[in-house]
Amino acid sequence: MKFKSLFFSSLALLTVFNACNDEPEDPIIANESELITTVIYELISESKADTLQLTFRDLDGDGGMAPEISSDTLKANTNYTGLIKLLDESGDDTEDITVEVSAEGEEHQLFYLVQPDSIAISYNSANVDGNGNPVGISTQLSTGGAFQGSLTITLRHEPDKFADGVADGKIDNAGGETDIEIEFPIAVE
């Protein structure tokens, strides 16, 4: 049984040799290139007197710390110009993702849903993609009387922008996948 003992001792030796506790190297922490940490919906009143912001911020991305959501109060019976800003603030340099969305306008669309339905939000007709369909980064917003409710802002990637009602801001037939969906509390006084 010479062979046997030789074999097993060499196997044991090899095992001991290999099973030293070597550690995996530190992972290279990926630059989360696609992350959107911050959404700001900036509203400027017609008179340019007021600049309001609805802000969503989740610097560490999904999981971890819960996101912060804040909203300024809107004035009743006022017209605002709305502008969306999408930022990645996770790194040292803030990246403006709005540029990316704008450049790929045919593949993106923002939707605005107010509940209860007492604020009118419409797309700015100048902010369209190559096919003449709205992208929705720039909007017009008109308040009525005082109320409290919510505004849900949704960014869809690869929606069917030619589907029925989608160009008018109706999300039902849009499909695609949701890149952003945030519900802001909203108050009009």
Binding site: P27, A30, E32
Partner: peptide
């Protein structure tokens, strides 16, 4: 490392 997304499964 080039995925641009935090990995679902760790290195080990």
């Amino acid at each position: 490392a080039n995925t641009g997304i935090l990995p679902l499964i760790p290195d080990y």
